[in-house]
Amino acid sequence: MIRYDVADAVATITLDRPDAMNSLTAELKTALLEALRKAAADSGVRAVLLTGSGRAFCAGQDLREHAANLEAGRGLADTVREHYNPIVQLITTMDKPVVAAVNGVAAGAGAALAFACDLRVASEKTRFALAFSGIGLAPDSGASWTLQRLVGLGRATELLLLGEPVSAERALELGLVTRVVPAADVVESARELAVRLAQGPTKAYAATKRALAYAAAHPLAESLALEADLQDACAATDDHVRATASFLAKEQPVFHGR
């Protein structure tokens, strides 16, 4: 259900239920969280690439499994708290860049997983569907948090209330994705981006992610204080010291992620 590969300091995590459009069962969600934890803990991994197999990135919650849970008197609360919340929390706080290769349909929680990533490369065939309200649900998987930070409160409200599909072109206009490429190139294009990040200053990227998340919910004075603390930490890294020397020598810096 999950394919996990590491090359060029990039961990590629592939949702692998193509016949079910990579919809999320409890088993798949558990495997995804384990794969993300593995990538986060591996010092040899400096960037993560998340994608899906077949024609979809992820169609969201597996509704067959969900219907069975409803019949058994179980709702979504357990899986939201046990699976979706820790998955999104880990993606957004991981001390490494996470790139999504959105190779097709991304719906519901599947779209939210893409939005939680730091950068998104979309296929021209990608369609995002914030389909929560269409089945009588509120957003989950961090969509209420990530979406308005990407497109603003007004657009996020529109997308979540109306639930209308968003094409790749429209997603690019709104700022939901970083770039749109031909379908045949989406994984390779996203991988090239992930490799580029994996060759960069990993600790500085981690500090940047932390600073952005903090500043989104804190006043300027507090954000400035955290920036100063993070800058002190980054200034002490081997990457910064070496990059400064390279700059003065008019050489291209080589980063080692430490």
Rank of each mutant, 00 (worst) to 15 (best):
G163F: 09
L113I: 15
A11M: 04
S189A: 14
D62F: 10
G154K: 11
D239M: 06
A216D: 15
G54T: 07
V254Q: 11
L137K: 09
V166D: 07
A206F: 06
T12S: 12
A245E: 15
P165I: 13
A59W: 04
Q199K: 14
G54Q: 09
G75T: 00
G60L: 03
A236H: 02
A112P: 08
M1R: 09
V88R: 02
S246G: 01
T14K: 00
E71Y: 07
G110N: 08
V45Q: 11
L147Q: 06
G60C: 02
S43G: 06
L226R: 08
A215S: 12
C234N: 13
S223D: 08
I135F: 13
S223P: 00
Q148V: 09
Q148P: 10
R191N: 10
G75F: 00
A245V: 13
A213D: 14
A59Q: 06
L162S: 15
R155D: 15
L248R: 08
L161H: 11
S43F: 06
A171R: 04
F128L: 09
A101V: 06
D239E: 09
Q231C: 11
L33Q: 05
L197T: 03
E82Y: 03
A67F: 13
N69A: 14
K125I: 10
A77D: 11
A77E: 12
S167H: 03
V254W: 11
V241K: 11
G134F: 06
S144T: 07
F128Q: 03
T146A: 12
R120L: 00
A129W: 10
V80L: 08
F115K: 05
V195C: 03
Q148N: 10
R179P: 00
L50P: 08
I91C: 02
D95Q: 04
A225T: 10
A7G: 01
A206P: 07
